[in-house]
């Protein structure tokens, strides 16, 4: 429409002829419905984030870890993480993984989903990627089993895995699993406001907490927008698009979302400023250190001591 016509009332003759025709364009190939990996992944991430973090599905339950003070939980879990970082014993690491699993069960978390998310991806990948380092290429030692017997392809010693190499790889995988377990456990069983409150109590800088808050609150909004963009594109896609076009679309979508999130963050900050935001997280919920928190801390201190002493003795 020309600028002169912009303000005039729309007349039927202004509408293009083809727009008034009701016959669909049958010649165009029908779009094939295919499962798209990226949109499926984004949708799944958005679902998990919405259901389990934003809605505080587990954090709102009146179960074991949920009833404890977030500061107590954070300190105990940090102690467990430190122990796992400094311990080289597979028994200690396994014990820590069992403790985390028991706490997950006691807190009413879906134990199958917990095991799948914690142990099903990252530790497995860590194990796979550390295997070359565990082989005789990097780690020498007494051969446990050979991949290539001695003398093959000019290798006098052959290619083998030693017990020391495999132990190192499993240790790495266990450590990542234990770290994930406790982080996941803390996130799922703690309300966000208490979570940031606990970090604040540990003197984590306010700026960092503000960024964390923003990311938490708007990751879901941004992921919803990403899904809408994918859906809009799907609805307007006839036939199959080439990989190059798909790549370009992804690039443009990411750029658009980046700009959009930048504008959104400015508006959110304005909204916070309008309500006198001082940069410090505050919550209406009372945080009180109760007897059960002390008992939990004491109990876990004992567990940590037993594991440390056990590692030294055996």
């Amino acid at each position: 429409m020309t600028p002169q016509k912009k303000n005039a009332e729309l007349q039927p003759e202004d509408i293009p002829r083809w727009l008034l025709e009701t016959n669909p364009d049958d010649a165009a190939p029908f779009p094939q419905r295919r499962t798209h990996f990226i949109s499926k992944t984004i949708r799944r991430i958005a679902e998990i984030f919405e259901n389990e973090f934003i809605c505080e599905r587990y954090a709102a339950l009146p179960n074991f870890l949920q009833l404890l003070d977030a500061r107590c939980k954070l300190c105990v879990f940090l102690a467990f993480l430190l122990l796992s970082a400094f311990s080289s014993s597979l028994v200690v690491l396994t014990a820590l993984a069992v403790v985390a699993f028991l706490y997950a069960c006691l807190s009413g978390l879906d134990w199958k989903a917990f095991l799948r998310r914690v142990w099903g991806y990252v530790p497995l990948l860590v194990l796979v990627f550390s295997l070359p380092g565990a082989s005789s290429l990097v780690t020498k030692g007494e051969p446990l089993f050979f991949l290539l017997p001695p003398g093959t392809a000019g290798w006098a010693d052959g290619l083998f895995f030693s017990a020391a190499g495999l132990t190192a790889a499993v240790r790495l995988a266990l450590r990542s699993g234990v770290s994930l377990s406790f982080s996941f456990l803390f996130l799922l069983t703690t309300r966000w406001a208490d979570f940031t409150g606990a970090l604040s109590a540990l003197h984590v800088p306010d700026l960092f907490l503000s960024i964390l808050n923003m990311a938490y609150r708007y990751l879901f909004v941004i992921s919803e927008q990403a899904i809408s963009m994918m859906e809009a594109r799907f609805l307007r896609t006839v036939g199959t698009l080439g990989t190059g076009k798909n790549r370009r679309f992804m690039g443009r979508s990411m750029a658009y979302l980046f700009l959009k999130s930048h504008l959104l963050s400015e508006e959110i900050y304005d909204a916070m400023a309008c309500r006198c935001f001082s940069g410090k997280p505050v919550t209406i919920r009372e945080r009180k250190w109760s007897v059960s928190d002390s008992l939990f801390a004491l109990n876990n201190t004992l567990i940590i001591l037993i594991l440390i002493v056990g590692e030294q003795l055996f």
């Binding site: 505080e56 309300r191 406001a193 304005d270 909204a271």
Partner: peptide, 14 residues
Amino acid sequence: VQLFCSTVLEELAF
């Protein structure tokens, strides 16, 4: 953009 807290209660209290 105006609702940035995790619950309505926190939102009102902010």
